[in-house]
């Protein structure tokens, strides 16, 4: 997760982990699989962000096969952001989000 946290959303400059876009990462002997979403189905940088996740997992995967799966279930909401990400966007209280 820490490695994936280096990938920033280009618009907001926030880590995709802090934005809550990474739902799951599974590591097995044969493969690494990440399940993630985007802030919007129309996100124009979606392919680039997913390509970045792919690159990171390939780098740290030790030769395992890498799968990046995009899902809209559950749909992303701002409530999935971390407190730090909310603060970065100008929110003082998580409840407001």
């Amino acid at each position: 997760m820490a490695e994936l946290g280096t990938i920033l959303d280009p618009e907001f400059g926030l880590s995709i982990v802090e934005l809550g876009l990474i739902y799951d990462v599974q590591l097995s002997d044969a493969q690494v699989k990440a399940v993630m979403t985007l802030t919007s189905p129309y996100c124009p940088a979606g392919d680039v962000i997913m390509g970045g996740v792919q690159s990171v997992l390939e780098r740290i995967g030790g030769g395992r096969a890498v799968t990046v799966q995009r899902t809209w279930e559950p749909q992303w909401t701002p409530a999935m952001m971390t407190r730090a990400a909310c603060a970065e966007l100008g929110w003082k209280e998580m409840d407001e989000v």
């Binding site: 280096t6 990938i7 920033l8 959303d9 280009p10 618009e11 907001f12 400059g13 680039v48 962000i49 390509g51 970045g52 996740v53 792919q54 690159s55 990171v56 780098r59």
Partner: peptide, 10 residues
């Protein structure tokens, strides 16, 4: 992205 640090668009 994912290969080296990049600046945000803004």
């Amino acid at each position: 992205v994912g290969r080296q640090p990049v600046p945000p668009a803004h």
